[in-house]
Write a protein that binds this DNA or RNA. Structure first.
Lengths: 359, 359
DNA sequence: TGAGGCTATCTTAACGTTAAGATAGATCAA
DNA sequence: TTGATCTATCTTAACGTTAAGATAGCCTCA
């Protein structure tokens, strides 16, 4: 019975067992409205019990070929060495996508572009018909995947990688405005020397956040001091190394009194370096992050940061995608989700001597 | 051209464009060995350029219906409120599965059982033919999914939920033996009152780990003190609450000197509670975990724990599943992966007065 | 010269499902 | 009584692909 049952039970077998045509079985099992395909009560029962007896499961693949939907959403992780563990950003978005997909009776299929050998090759995989559409997570602005997808005309939504093309739907947050607000907050507390530890310049979000930092300084009549903005990347190691450099290379009176980090991971590294150097946070140095990863609340001290609604972003993306699939065409909706600053203990006014003395 | 392109390009259209039959196009594009289906060089070129021109992508769905493989592995997350963010265990295994799947040209499809209304209903989703087989993550021993899957005869592999049935393939670690070793280590350091914070008793792994704790005590001539083993679940909140209770309810001389936690998440909660209560770790209290999540190394103090090769477990499971799919039948392979204790700073001998005074 | 074997290609049928139209008996109004 | 309408079911064709067998021209060898 079980064991080497290679083939699965088909509609035809159920039909034979119940002594009716396949169409009748199909109608009964899909519970079509009776006015479309009326079935006698007795027949219905016979069909249902035959299906149960044979353990029949409808083939989504065959259904997908017949109709035009396979009821699956694809999620594309472009990052070549993408790993879920230790990537709260991707996991959060994915959780949102899965939640909506589940609620709407859709499956979720993961695509990871092992090595990126150009969009053309990857599309062979992404567009093979096993999903109805794609959610692209943080495509680099340099990648050619967006134009390629537009060309094949498949529904897709971008998360965190807004495109100027009016046909593209995307879910995005205000990187610049929120960073500007954060830096403004530090300025209002009296900080004047505020370092910024940015993500890699190839990333859209990193560029936008950096721009927010500049705008806040400009609004306060200050300009960016390159010595306080060492290039880096989103990652614990970057935060650690850059912070150490800042501490070692700058004379005490030129040291920043606040460290605005482009991501929480960077802030984690920064806090570690400050801890090792005996610099107390926030008394001697304020530190801020961006993302509000789960760890942010339990760091020592808890991190003041920007909360990105990761799961909501995933949910929105999934809904936009479903809309586009339904409509059968790109809808070009750009959603901008609200973010907020979460105030925790890693920020305080600068140590007293600084006061209003702008250098 | 793009825009409302709803339907995708088919083999037939490519064949028409190239002026050959569909079969020839199929043979060219799948690069079949020439001795099976020889095609003239000129024809080949014509087909390839037609396919490129029309942006043809073979339909995996149609291929899957024709042949018997769709080249996708399913991963079933039974946990009803499964979330990837904050679940390093699931993420780690998933990373391993994805790595192997990718390397073998397979897709990965996620199934989450929103609410668990019995295996029969869930199987409708899991067995709808869009995957060639399933990897089941940590099924509860109480769930009826394993017998149900055996009955429908679909290839599947269990991770961390070994079954006695000889047909079932599983990837497992030694929960009991390693916990026994960990508790033995604490005993050898002189600890005699060792609390154990278990995972939910419905979970196989939690039961097995708990059993290891008992065995270690028994080997030292001790028996379990129910007051030191409050029921709980794998999760930060459980560790925090249970630890607070232990600290508040027990008189100082009855307090444990070591806290053996059923998971790293529990240990995270325990450390937080101890920190708040001003109990120094490891000077006044040793703490151990299980899993070795990435955070374990950066906790304060870094956590002594059992390293579970999560990613390797995922990789093994994927390989076992591919073997079973290949064979077309359950193979009943049980893999037991090695684990090791990672010694970090959260463990020390008990404070001096305790010594050998077994109460 | 014809049998056999190549090479390059085409045709048919099938995978499991479903939309649309066909059928056949029963009921009903004119 | 004749057609119209309704109910319950069946039949056909199609979705995009591919295995297997068919075909047709050409070459080789006895």
């Amino acid at each position: 019975m079980s064991g080497s049952t290679r083939r699965s039970v088909t509609l035809k077998e159920v039909a034979a067992e119940a002594g009716v045509s396949m169409m009748t079985v199909s109608a009964v099992l899909r519970a079509r409205p009776a006015d479309k395909y009326p079935v006698a009560e007795a027949t219905r029962d016979r069909v249902l019990s035959a299906a149960r007896k044979l353990r029949y499961f409808p083939s989504a693949v065959a259904q997908g070929m017949r109709g035009k939907r396979i009821n699956a959403l694809g999620v594309v992780l472009i990052n070549p060495d993408a790993r879920l563990q230790g990537d709260p950003y991707v996991c959060g978005v994915l959780d949102g996508v899965i939640a909506v997909a589940n609620a709407e009776g859709q499956n979720t299929t993961l695509f990871t572009a092992g090595r990126w050998s150009g969009a053309q090759e990857s599309l062979q995989t992404f567009c093979d018909g096993r999903t109805d559409g794609l959610i692209i997570l943080s495509p680099s602005p340099d990648s050619d995947i967006v134009p390629a997808l537009l060309e094949v005309g498949r529904p897709f939504v971008i998360v965190n990688g807004q495109s100027d093309d009016p046909r593209v739907s995307s879910v995005e947050i205000e990187h610049a405005a929120r960073t500007e607000e954060m830096v403004g907050h530090l300025l209002s507390l009296g900080h004047r020397r505020i370092a910024y530890l940015p993500g890699r310049a190839a990333s859209r979000s990193a560029r936008a956040r950096h721009e927010g930092y500049r705008r806040a300084l400009a609004a306060a009549g200050l300009s960016e001091d390159p010595a306080l903005v060492p290039p880096g990347f989103y990652g614990i190691a970057s935060g650690y190394d850059r912070t150490r450099s800042l501490l070692m290379t700058l004379p005490a009176d030129l040291r920043p009194t606040a460290l605005c980090c482009g991501s929480d991971q960077i802030a984690v590294g920064a806090l570690r370096a400050l801890h090792e150097a005996g610099v107390r946070v926030p008394e001697q140095m304020s530190v801020t992050g961006f993302d509000d990863i789960p760890d942010a609340a339990t760091l020592d001290p808890p991190l003041t940061t920007v909360r990105q609604p990761l799961e909501e972003m995933g949910r929105r993306a999934a809904r936009l995608l479903l809309d586009a699939i339904e409509a059968g065409r790109p809808l070009g909706v750009k959603e901008l989700l609200p973010t907020e600053i979460v105030h925790r203990r890693s920020v305080a006014p600068p140590p007293s001597p600084t006061k209003e003395s702008v250098r």
